[in-house]
Write a protein that binds this DNA or RNA. Structure first.
Length: 493
RNA sequence: GCCCCCAUCGUCUAGGGGACCAGGACGUAGCCCUUUCAAGGCUAAGACCGGGGUUCGAAUCCCCGUGGGGGCACCA
């Protein structure tokens, strides 16, 4: 797909943790930039100094890097339109606000916060739509000058036309026509001199030559305002792309702060920087979130980053909100785990064994990985399944040593018989142990399952394990014989 | 209350007038494979929100209703 290079940006505000919704917005931006050979820009919208949380800037950067998303311009690496943090661009916004005032598209408003609160309260009581009543809209230049000279605090408001309508074009939804009479005189610059999103983001997108504005559909209500602002400056509109929001798994509304916190306690999370620790692969996260609101065709669902870059298309974006589906997430994680080169997987597994308290080494893990690769859904499953490989000794209960439909005496006979066979074999490679053990089962009148069951319990201490013969091969002769002997004596007592 | 958006299986979705008694995926159930557990294969149940139009013909286009979602800050 060839297109003109897109200049896109991900512009989070460092006021909270980065979740999968933001991750998806960043991903789509990134995909379009890489697909078209354009640029992807990271910008921090940190004009709200009260809600600013510096540590979330690092979290955003770490989260995006983990996903494999990198940017061409940003606060941490500069670029032709630096600075890339809005807190450093205050004067630019102020200058633009002045332009708007001069051209009659904005005005200074001296109403106090108290009056505004009072106004809003009254409007709510009379069930009117809460909005500014326009008191300062018609002040004379002399009046304004006098108040300015007196140092009266004021904000700058957009002078919304009272009549007519505005047509907003969204890439996903098409034309949205809104009556100007329904729109408010929104504040553009606060009394402390900081620009609000409405002004700052528009100015930055323009200055940074952004071609496609990806943002959450939560912005749809102020979309008309933003179109008006662009028009007031005489600028051409960018492509506006309003992404549908993510709904909680039940599909009933957005995830609340409290619910996301509860989720973390339950060992699940929508925060990017939690997902790594929970054993998810960034490849799976990308695949999963890319498909929430976007599709390729009627059957392809497995995508690598390269696939996504090649196949992403604005035309296939879906306007409807999507409920988060964690079981599908697990499914994708499994697919990507199985698609990994085993040595690569072993390297990713290592920290999970260490964290679970096992003194695992990469060399042994590389031997184990092929037999557990298709058994783990998340990386943190692995120590549970294969931790016994790194235990000096295992403790088994009689229950674990006796398979179903088998008596203790039978299990004891199996253990003793198997021990005898294994001791005589030159090595415990899985293809040398296979035939003798099966032959023994037949001679003794047991099913292979019974024999393997006893040995599984003896060797792994678990009733569920990776394939037994391969497991014994990796464990080694000494350990296997010791454990089987231990089981034989336990069973015969 | 007002404004805006959306509407296909439980969930994510394909579908853009006839190719659809609606396809795929997750999940669920069953079977096969099998030393356990997985993985894999096969099968099953499961949806076009309702009502009007337009049309020879509508899941697809239009209108109304209903339902769901989002927003109404000197937050973003």
């Amino acid at each position: 797909m060839t297109a003109t290079p897109a200049r896109v940006r991900f512009a989070p505000s460092p006021t909270g943790r980065l979740h999968i919704g933001g991750g998806r917005t960043a991903l789509y931006n990134y995909l379009l930039a890489r697909q078209t050979g354009g640029q992807f820009i990271l910008r921090f919208e940190d004009t709200d100094r009260a809600r600013y949380q510096p540590e979330t800037e690092k979290e955003i950067i770490d989260g995006l890097h983990w996903l494999g998303i990198d940017w061409d311009e940003g606060p941490d690496k500069g670029g032709p339109h630096a600075p890339y943090s809005q807190s450093e661009r205050k004067e630019i916004y102020l200058a633009h606000a002045e332009k708007l005032i001069a051209s009659g598209h904005a005005y200074r408003c001296f109403c106090t916060a108290a009056r505004l609160a009072e106004l809003r309260k009254r409007q709510q009581e009379t069930k009117e739509t809460p909005r500014y009543d326009g008191l300062c809209r018609t002040r004379t230049p002399d009046d304004v000058a006098a108040r300015l000279a007196a140092g009266e605090p004021h904000v700058v408001r957009f002078k919304m036309p009272k009549t007519g309508s505005v047509t907003c074009v969204d890439r996903i939804r098409g034309e949205i026509v809104v009556e100007n009479a329904n729109l408010d005189d929104s504040i553009l610059v606060k009394s402390d001199g900081w620009a609000l999103y409405h002004l700052a983001a528009m100015v930055d997108d323009r200055e940074m030559e952004i071609t496609h504005v990806f943002r959450s559909s939560e912005w749809l209500p102020s979309f008309p305002l933003h179109v008006h602002i662009y028009n007031a400056f005489g600028w051409d509109q960018p492509e506006w792309v309003h992404l549908s929001v993510f709904l909680k798994p039940s599909g009933k509304g957005k995830m609340s702060k409290r619910e996301t916190a509860e989720m973390v306690e339950d060992g699940q999370s929508i925060f990017l920087t939690d997902l790594e620790g929970l054993g998810y692969l960034p490849e799976a996260v990308n695949n999963w979130i890319a498909l929430m609101g976007w599709s390729y065709d009627d059957r392809t669902e497995f995508f690598t980053m390269e696939d996504l870059i090649a196949k992403f298309s604005l035309d296939k974006l879906n306007p409807a909100p999507a409920a988060i589906n964690f079981s599908k997430f697990d499914h994708f994680n499994g697919l990507h785990i199985r698609a990994l080169d085993p040595d690569d997987l072993a390297g990713r597994l290592l920290p999970f064994f260490h964290r679970a308290g096992f003194e695992a080494d990469l060399e042994t893990l590389r031997k184990i990985t092929p037999i557990i690769q298709e058994r783990v859904k998340t990386l943190d499953d692995a120590p549970e399944i294969a931790g016994f490989f790194f235990k000096g000794s295992i403790s088994t209960t009689l229950e674990e040593l006796i398979p179903r439909k088998t008596t203790q005496a039978e299990a004891a006979a199996i253990a003793a018989g198997a021990l005898e066979i294994l001791e005589r074999l030159p090595d415990l490679a899985h293809d040398t142990t296979d035939a003798p053990l099966r032959a023994m089962a037949e001679e003794m009148g047991f099913s292979a399952g019974q024999v393997f069951g006893v040995l599984r319990g003896a060797v792994t201490g678990q009733s569920v394990s990776p394939p037994l013969l391969e497991t014994m091969e990796i464990l080694g002769r000494e350990v296997v014989l010791e454990r089987v002997a231990g089981a034989a004596s336990a069973l015969s007592s």
